[in-house]
């Protein structure tokens, strides 16, 4: 008994040695239309795969991008500068050696930075929540305010309270923060202001701390 050969099997001659069940397991060669769709699917994969990665990673990348201070907007040492819908001015930047003991390590310099801030009336795109004042050196190291140096009670506030008051009450608010930095780099540091709403941009003032006699 012979098995009927399918008429579309163009490669049947090439499989002369194969038994009928083996022949049945083998794929027929793809037609021209099928080959075209295979190529289209492959090309689409090259587009869809990066697109899927981009869509799933979008939130993470955005959080990374807006969670860092990457680009400095330079401000003159004592001139007011607009940033985040607020007008900032560096009003004081002084330093004095801090005596070691308690929570103050050896060879530390105390730096006090003072700013004035007022609302400009321009509504920022996002509320300028989370204000961080810091000092940075040329290598990108950052010092944030310390609690080891209690400042005397004054009209100055910490940054977040001041910008909230500036937005709510208006007028000029004063900001003051203290820092502990190594003595050898203290004179090279520059103050910076970072607002969560403005990242990856931050404001950096072109002024170095001035040494004063400790009181």
């Amino acid at each position: 008994m012979s098995i009927a050969r399918p008429p579309e099997d163009a490669h049947a001659e090439a499989r002369q040695g194969a038994s009928p069940p083996e022949r049945a397991l083998r794929d027929d060669p793809p037609s021209a239309g099928e080959r075209l769709w295979r190529r289209r699917s492959l090309a689409l994969l090259a587009v869809l795969l990066p697109l899927t990665i981009a869509v799933t990673a979008y939130d993470s990348v955005r959080q990374w991008w807006t969670g860092r201070d990457l680009f400095a907007r330079e401000a003159a040492g004592d001139a007011p500068a607009g940033f985040g819908g607020l007008r900032w001015q560096l009003t004081g930047l002084r330093m004095a050696p801090a005596p070691a003991g308690g929570r103050i390590p050896a060879d530390a310099m105390a730096v006090v930075a003072q700013f004035s801030v007022q609302a400009t009336g321009a509504q920022p795109a996002r509320a300028p929540l989370e204000c961080v004042v810091s000092l940075e050196d040329g290598e990108g190291r950052r010092w944030t305010p310390t609690l080891a140096l209690p400042l005397p009670r004054a009209s100055e506030r910490e940054c977040n309270a001041a910008i909230r008051a500036a937005a709510k009450e208006g007028g000029t608010q004063r900001v003051q923060h203290a820092f502990l930095v190594p003595r050898e780099v203290a004179a090279t540091l520059r103050p910076a202001i970072s607002l969560a709403s403005q990242r990856p941009y931050y404001l950096r003032f072109a002024r170095r701390p001035e040494l004063v006699q400790a009181q």
Partner: peptide
């Protein structure tokens, strides 16, 4: 323990 760069404790 609050730490600042360059000031080990």
């Amino acid at each position: 323990h609050a730490l600042d760069p360059g000031l080990p404790r």
